[in-house]
Write a protein that binds this DNA or RNA. Sequence first.
DNA 1: CTGAAAGCGCTTACAG
DNA 2: CTGAAAGCGCTTACAG
Lengths: 331, 331
Amino acid sequence: MQVSIKDIAEKLGVSPALVSLVLNGKEKEGRVNEETARKIRELAAKLNYAPNRFAKALKKGKSGILGLIIADLSNPFYAKLARYIEDEAELFNYKVIIGSSDENAKKMTSLINIMKSYQVDGFMIVPTEFSQKRIEMLIAENIPVVLVDRYFTGIHVDNVLVNNADTAFKAVDYLIAQGCRKIAVFTYQSKLLHFKDRISGYIHALSTNGYPVNEEAIFNVRFDYLYEDVKKGIKKLLKSDFDGIFFTTDTLALNAIRILRESGSDITRYFKIFSFDENDTFDFLNFTVPHSVQPLDEIGQKTVHLIADQIENKKSKDPQVIIFETKFVIP
Amino acid sequence: MQVSIKDIAEKLGVSPALVSLVLNGKEKEGRVNEETARKIRELAAKLNYAPNRFAKALKKGKSGILGLIIADLSNPFYAKLARYIEDEAELFNYKVIIGSSDENAKKMTSLINIMKSYQVDGFMIVPTEFSQKRIEMLIAENIPVVLVDRYFTGIHVDNVLVNNADTAFKAVDYLIAQGCRKIAVFTYQSKLLHFKDRISGYIHALSTNGYPVNEEAIFNVRFDYLYEDVKKGIKKLLKSDFDGIFFTTDTLALNAIRILRESGSDITRYFKIFSFDENDTFDFLNFTVPHSVQPLDEIGQKTVHLIADQIENKKSKDPQVIIFETKFVIP
DNA sequence: CTGAAAGCGCTTACAG
DNA sequence: CTGAAAGCGCTTACAG
């Protein structure tokens, strides 16, 4: 059904090898007759020839496919990141296959295996909790890997991040400057270091400003009980004298906003808030949400550059850790 | 680097063919020695063997990959649909590659060509305006296709839709029952028939209720100037005596809401509204937005069933057109 | 300037 | 019960 190189070769009475050469633009190596080349190109166009990538990949040992594993595709933050990565990959002639780990290390491992069977040339991964070992195996197998958004210690790998602790510090500092005296923080219950860093930044800002750090002020929300846990936390805070909340993620902020909204009220009536990361919904509220923004476009681009570099320049340089600055959007 | 069937065969002193048989679960055809089979499976597991899908696809002439082309992946409506389709496809052992046409027929064509080169076994397409011919070519090439969300006339193809005209009729009827006397409609400037149907439903509801149909009440928004055109429309309406708006899409409703929000006001202060399709942001507003909901899960599942059926049962039955009912979410 | 041949990893008749 | 061989569509040395 599909036209092959052989079909073209036969109709033109030349060898398949020649057709391959021409169609891959390698005829300018001074080897192919101009006239023959022209004929081949014309017939290929007319027949709507599309090369079989499987055959090509099989022969070349390279698929031209990159595997992207993100934490949660239904989260717009990662959906946007995926889009930027896809767009940049396209410029490098790579196709991206995307999988969502749903914050589950087992699912991440299974995605890695599936993608390996699709012969991906390299992996870009937003790693889940407890997935360090699987990543290390990949590196040991000599398969190109770039980690994004999150990191582990003691692992030798390219990594693209933002300045988590610093952003959190400035965020809490901002709330204090706005007059907050008691600031709570909502974060995910997780061993992932970028969350730890955001909490460190929070603590650092409090102590720098001479405020006490209170264990009770730190709310650890479970991924799988996001709504419920935030609700519990907010209820508790409403009975206390806290006047500010720092959310280490926009999903946490959004759920808190929603919970108050559901009882017919606005969160800003009770607290000044700050959200690490933006959310499109912020634009539709009848109050503004101060937040930080990650340069997702640059993060995506850099990620692709790093993986392409690993694939194309096999020589193993020292791994690079790239840290981007966040921007602040405050009224 | 990757383990192949040959590696396993050599280490065990058997032929590659045997390994292939066992690893594909075809040894129970009474042909392979139990003991040999066990050894093969054990070694494969130990070596973390993953079959090279390219080689397999090349040999079998089937890739196990489905191509999904949607209008806009950054639109949560399509992102959700894509997710349901992926999940269902997984149950059928298909992998899905997704492309976004951005409502552009040229881009759609180019995506089709790329996906063909990935040897997709079939296409699931949310077609753009002016793309009927390209779809017909696909059908002529005998490649399995299912159209989703939108349709053309005079084309012989499986199609999954909702009851557009009927939903629009009920929506406008609802606004009238709420006391609206003059109802405007915002829709996309497009020849796509499902939009036409929604306008028909609107017109039908007006005339059924004895209201005049006014050309001035129909606002055709350009995809590429969504925000600007909605803004112009809203400004115009604010100077008139319209008291209701039917939006043929949640994105239109959302932009209208946002535009009023930006001038510090709520749309509900001026109009009763109804949105065709839901949007997560509706939950965060300090008013409710009556809207209809499409059964995206069922739509996604049915789409996969239809394409899988086409691929697996080559016999060409008559094309099926499946029409789902929408649900209404009104206060 | 061009062709014949080998081989990527797999599956599938065909022999035995 | 098992092996040898062909071939999917392509590319890449190797010859000429």
